[in-house]
Design a protein around this nucleic acid. Structure first.
Lengths: 155, 155
DNA sequence: CTTGACCTTGGAGTTACCTCCAAGGTTTAT
DNA sequence: ATAAACCTTGGAGGTAACTCCAAGGTCAAG
């Protein structure tokens, strides 16, 4: 059993965040001490860990609640519905992974373009690294002048 | 050249979001028409695409700006610093990917535990699927007391 | 020349997600 | 038994990221 302060400290979050999660039914401590202190079980701790990790990869608290409330139960007829929901989430996660892997690759390219120095890359940004399959090589066209005026188009 | 409405429609976002991004220096349209209309180039469109994808995988606008402003330039002495930043980001992305893959796996298990029906799983939640290496099999302990979870997080 | 669909700006309002505060009760150490 | 370090509640405040609104300018079509 953890008290709110312990748990908060363990995950380096604010106690108020835990109270907030409780108010919003994301994480309700399994017990209360006689004095009314929140008491979190090991299971609660697991759940919190899940919540924080899900948050870190871009799920909203609403989505996380949705995930937490999924309970596949063969005795339940709604099983097919649940499966649909899960598969839907799975697709979303798959997309996120793909996005991140593209990121990963482009950051790698950015890193490689730098200092490592066997390539002739002179200039590179994340966008260029993402865009092109290879490290963008701009062999010396630094046309970084300011263009003074917005001389129109669009009639 | 795209006008704000076209671009917004293309990405299914609000025009005001684009104005907001401009105000916060995330995406400043390359040009303005004589009348003052924002004109976005193909390049701007690319950048927007990047911003939205980065957002989807949990980066804050501040972080995205940081990513966008990374410019590896061999002529620049700050190259090592940039490499450090990039590698740092790369680590963060790697972690996100790992998290998502764990998710992926557990969702898969959830899905498999359902309907597919060759296993004897009777009950399974995302937490249990994450926790255990195998599909959690609870052969018949339905302690489904009522949990009155009323007011779910906003709606 | 008017209509309607565009666009502009500044500023206010909203939502999600916390974070802080005040007033007070509980526990533990000295 | 008093201090400190915990905890409680309700409610206000804060930040990020939009989202909406009003008043008005632009532009192609009829």
């Amino acid at each position: 059993m953890y008290r709110i302060g312990e748990l908060a400290k363990h995950f380096d979050i604010n106690q108020d965040t835990l109270r907030f999660y409780e108010k919003n039914q994301l994480l309700v401590p399994s017990e209360r001490s006689r004095a009314g202190y929140r008491l979190y079980t090991e299971q609660d701790k697991q759940t919190l860990s899940f919540i924080l990790r899900a948050k870190a990869v871009g799920f909203s608290l609403n989505e996380i609640q949705e995930l937490l409330s999924i309970e596949i139960d063969k005795a339940n007829n709604a099983c097919a519905d649940v499966k649909t929901l899960v598969d839907h989430k799975r697709l979303a996660v798959e997309e996120k992974i793909a996005e991140l892997q593209a990121f990963q690759l482009s950051l790698q390219r950015l890193s490689d373009a730098c200092c490592g120095g066997d390539v002739s890359a002179v200039h590179c940004t994340i966008l260029e690294a993402l865009e092109t399959g290879e490290t963008k090589v701009r062999s010396e066209n630094h046309s970084h002048e300011f263009k003074e005026q917005q001389d129109v188009v669009a009639e």
